[in-house]
Design a protein around this nucleic acid. Structure first.
Lengths: 225, 225
DNA sequence: CGTGTTATTGATAGATCTCAAAGATGGTGG
DNA sequence: CCACCATCTTTGAGATCTATCAATAACACG
């Protein structure tokens, strides 16, 4: 409903950063909105990737499942972030599933609409490239962590990344945290318990509050406690 | 030396796929060549990312090291592939180190030159986006594998990916294979020994030949032997 | 106050890493 | 042509982390 608010959101979203009002309005006009309740999906893994989305309001989780049912959290998104970028270059199918975590609204553009938009405002192309590239770097970093680091450190890194994006009060289950760090619910729970005993975090049902980010950072970087 | 050959290489490289001759020549003219012997680096982790490169000839390995010295192979590149794409959007520093594995020649463009090139030939922007996006997808897949799969499967996947790109005869050490799959030299060696006993592969010093890709695929996908 | 989800904790087994030692391999220079 | 060297590889034994399984507890919600 609040058009004004929506434009602000778009203007602060990565793909449209630094664009003038005209361009943002043009983009806003070309896209179409969609509202989702918790549990509904923006797109599903394997579907043809025909649209690119920007999250206006709410939180979205992007997951990938293996053939045998195991799940990984690929990304957690907050307002202003982009998803489904495969659509931008006609890349076939969505590689993951995007699920709303709370009341969420998104705005989406079809590949064709996006093409026209980029033609009118070439800066968008550069922004898109930067956004995707940024994701690539973050993913490569996670890859390196997963390949070389122990579970406790990976958990610390995962939490710290979330704190950077969303603040110290995080709303996620142990299961989700585990999938982010590539471990199991049980190990995540044990680790959080230990950290809570050390006063590093405060944990509740579906909730983790980081008390001492510096303490976690020490765990994540260094070896010694 | 062979300008003709070079243009063919560029034209078949992902960032320039589908472009007309004029554009390819323009790109070739704007970039500058560099030759590297085994062990020399195209760029190093942490250096300011000022150039984007396309590999014309040879093989290049991109690695990332952790603060405590552990190493991961982020990518292995063959002719026509792109590296250092961070430079395309002024993204700060190279996240990894690119090392020549054999006699190698590359062509590079500064961020500014690339900007001008994209202005003259907008299709390049779309190609770049597609290339980076493709890397992102592949990286996310590896991430999922690393998070959910056992070492043997990860090794199988790593080999299969290489076979797809370079054929059945691969030139890599156990160490490199291990870093690709996120495991140790020792486990990689043991696994290859087992596979060799089953006739799946043939291994030598710095060399792996895949005899039965289907057999590896069965290991990688399914659970049963 | 049930009821279903989420979290905790313990015991156990198994995969994988670590460390150590020895065996191949291929290139190089005398 | 051969001996030598650095590098790569194999294999074993033990330690350790982490997943797995099972049982219980805490929580939120209608």
């Amino acid at each position: 409903m609040p058009e004004h608010n929506e434009r602000e959101r778009l203007a602060s979203a990565r793909p449209f950063a630094g664009l003038d009002e005209v361009a943002v309005d043009d983009a806003a006009g070309a896209g179409h909105r969609r509202h989702l309740s918790p549990g509904e999906t923006v797109f599903r893994q394997g579907e043809p990737a025909d649209e690119l989305f920007v999250l206006l309001e709410g939180r979205v989780k992007v997951t990938q499942v293996t053939s045998d049912g195991q799940q990984v959290v690929v990304r957690l998104l907050g307002p202003g972030e982009m998803m489904g970028c495969v659509a931008a270059w006609g890349g076939g199918n969505y590689p993951g599933t995007a699920t709303a975590q709370e009341e969420t609204s998104v705005i989406g553009w079809s590949g064709a609409a996006l093409g026209r938009l980029v033609e009118r405002h070439p800066a968008i192309a550069r922004n898109l490239l930067g956004t995707v590239g940024h994701s690539l770097q973050e993913t490569q970093t996670r890859l390196r962590e997963l390949a070389t680091e122990r579970v406790e450190r990976r958990l610390a890194h995962a939490l710290l990344r979330l704190v950077d994006k969303e603040g110290r009060s995080l709303r996620l289950t142990r299961q989700e945290l585990a999938e982010l760090a590539g471990t199991t619910l049980f190990t995540a729970s044990r680790t959080l318990s230990a950290w809570e005993a050390q006063g590093l975090v405060e944990a509740g049902r579906g909730r983790v509050t980081v008390r001492r980010p510096d303490g976690l950072a020490a765990l994540a970087e260094d070896a010694s406690p």
